[in-house]
Write a protein that binds this DNA or RNA. Structure first.
Lengths: 146, 146
DNA sequence: ATTTACTCTATCTGTAAGATAGGATATATA
DNA sequence: TATATATCCTATCTTACAGATAGAGTAAAT
């Protein structure tokens, strides 16, 4: 399951990627636009800032803006920040590998084998999706007659 | 994250698929072989039985055995039993779809779009893997020189 | 009858998610 | 320099769930 934090983070980042590049957005505005509890969003944006995804400006006219190009911000990174490794089991993680204490031989473990495939499939999608590419897809759908 | 229940279930089922087809295995033996807390495994096997994956025999010489052909038991089914839908968000689930209360238009939601891709990639792996196919892979690795 | 092994319900503990509160700090501008 | 504005940061609350254990009940074999 994707946590609310990760979900809200993606929504907020997407909104920022869709707004004026040099114009900061306030927490309160972002929260209202994306239907997110403001104080909760505050925490999330702060986390994203500490990870170098966002930058902030204090005081009047302040707020948050993207610290990097939307084409350089991958969903995989966002999800990992809030929900940890993508792999369903620690022994299948590439970025945060931890062996199972009980497993005598990982190479021959069915769970390890199957879950490594799941983690690779997930990583392919999330590390292959950027804020820019996702925004592009959303826009494409918006143009479609419905 | 894969729950311990789902993980233990897969391990136990794999062990059963690897044992004599008509010979029941006792909870205690299965627990020892797979390093699973016995009373916890008990619950898990019971669940699998109630879902028609396993059958059981009581009394001396009793235990659990597969209720179906290993080629007919898919990992996706097992994971769904214990961990619910594969999709990271309910609005991306095929088997247990629930719309987001706050989402005005799902078709145009970036989270929905990306997470649908993740769910499809995950389902492709897990619904495409059976106890039989997984056992085959494990055996293949076992034959490899290491 | 007795042993064996599954069946079922209840319960316990710890941890984490989701969320809120409120004071501290920095910045713009009058 | 005072004041309004907005982020920064830490603490805390509540609830739910995962993981696990206990123990009495039931059915089958010998």
């Amino acid at each position: 399951m994707l946590s609310k934090k990760a979900k809200y983070a993606i929504k907020a980042l997407l909104a920022l990627a869709d707004s004026e590049p040099e114009e900061p957005m306030r927490i309160a505005d972002l929260a209202r636009a994306e239907q997110i509890p403001p104080k909760f969003l505050e925490l999330i944006l702060l986390g994203l800032k500490n990870q170098g995804i966002l930058q902030s400006r204090k005081g009047k006219g302040g707020g948050y803006l993207l610290a990097r190009d939307p084409a350089d911000i991958h969903l995989g990174q966002i999800v990992r920040i809030f929900d940890g490794p993508l792999a369903p089991v620690p022994c299948a993680s590439q970025t945060a590998y931890v062996p199972c204490a009980d497993c005598p031989d990982e190479a021959v473990c069915g769970v390890h084998l199957a879950m490594t495939e799941v983690r690779n499939a997930t990583a392919k999608v999330l590390d292959g999706t950027t804020l820019a590419s996702l925004r592009r897809k959303v826009r494409q759908v918006k143009l479609l007659p419905r």
